[in-house]
């Protein structure tokens, strides 16, 4: 064990892990963070707290992680390299660790073009692979990126990274994962999986390089609320692949039954993915639909969560 992270303990004990996410509010509304965390209490092993997702300003991941922690959950601090340079990020890593946050996800972040501040500078002092390296160096060597020694105990962060098996070029996607693992990623959360066939093909490549033995891979799952949401994700969200059969299935369902159909699709996907060698758990991203995570976890046979 490298850290005290609950997620690491669950994975290390051989359980299928379950994580979910909470997008912080666009204002000083701690009660909203509390409300969302209540939906996830006892249902997941860690809660991703997104960092200005879709390049929209929100309560900082750091602050919302602390509030989530105060509610007794295990926050998973997301950090994007888009908004801050290496000094600011390292400061937040030791700050977060000082407040008991021990799990994080290293990302480059959505481009500012997609958010409400397209006029802002994209920082990108370092990229997501270099961020993973930096956190690992802080944890394992007790050194800042610039080379100086950290004072006191190093921040024992369980280090996560993202992988998108559905982006192009497909043949590069396994090597990109290998790079993140070599940089120091302990676990991976994938992009939402709708095309299970393609994911399985990617996992074949992952296993061929034995990457699943070096890192825990959590399969990303998103329940679709409506045929409109399915079409939106199919056409408008970069890096997302929604097969036509899913859109058709939602379209063939009466409107009022579509949310239930979406949950069904999601539970079926989890059941199928459980049998894929190398899948160590699930990351359920129920965007603005956090209240459904408990039901998904229960219906997918992932409840109760292990106490480790």
């Amino acid at each position: 064990m490298k850290t005290e992270s609950n997620l690491e303990k669950v994975l290390n004990a051989g359980h299928l892990a379950v994580t979910s996410e909470c997008g912080p509010p666009r204002g000083a509304l701690p009660e909203e963070v509390v409300k969302k965390s209540k939906y996830l209490e006892g249902v997941v092993d860690a809660v991703n707290i997104t960092d200005n997702q879709t390049a929209m300003v929100r309560m900082s991941s750091f602050a919302a992680s602390v509030i989530t922690k105060q509610q007794g959950l295990h926050p998973l601090l997301q950090m994007v390299t888009r908004d801050r340079n290496r000094l600011a990020m390292q400061a937040d890593i030791i700050g977060a660790y000082s407040l008991g946050i021990d799990t994080m996800l290293c990302l480059s972040g959505d481009h500012t073009k997609f958010g409400d501040h397209p006029m802002a500078a994209n920082v990108h002092d370092i990229d997501s692979v270099q961020l993973i390296q930096m956190v690992k160096q802080m944890r394992d060597e007790g050194k800042f990126q610039g080379g100086a020694d950290l004072k006191g105990d190093p921040p024992k962060m369980f280090i996560g990274a993202a992988a998108n098996p559905f982006a192009d070029p497909f043949e590069l996607r396994v090597m990109r994962l290998a790079k993140k693992i070599n940089a120091g990623a302990d676990f991976i959360q994938t992009q939402c999986i709708f095309n299970v066939d393609k994911f399985e093909k990617w996992m074949e490549g992952v296993r061929a390089r034995r990457l699943h033995e070096k890192c825990y891979i959590l399969a990303g799952i998103t329940p679709i609320k409506s045929v409109g949401a399915a079409k939106f994700m199919q056409n408008r969200v970069p890096g997302m692949e929604v097969p036509q059969e899913i859109v058709d299935r939602m379209a063939a369902t009466p409107k009022e039954e579509q949310p239930e159909e979406g949950i069904k699709i999601c539970v079926e996907a989890i059941e199928r993915l459980k049998n894929v060698e190398g899948v160590a758990g699930f990351h359920i991203m129920a965007i603005e639909w956090e209240e459904k995570v408990e039901e998904i976890v229960k219906r997918a046979g992932l409840y109760p969560r292990p106490q480790v």
């Binding site: 481009h111 692979v129 270099q130 070029p169 990109r176 970069p238 890096g239």
Partner: peptide
Amino acid sequence: NGPCGGSA
């Protein structure tokens, strides 16, 4: 270190 998840 390689393409992000938005390359299509």
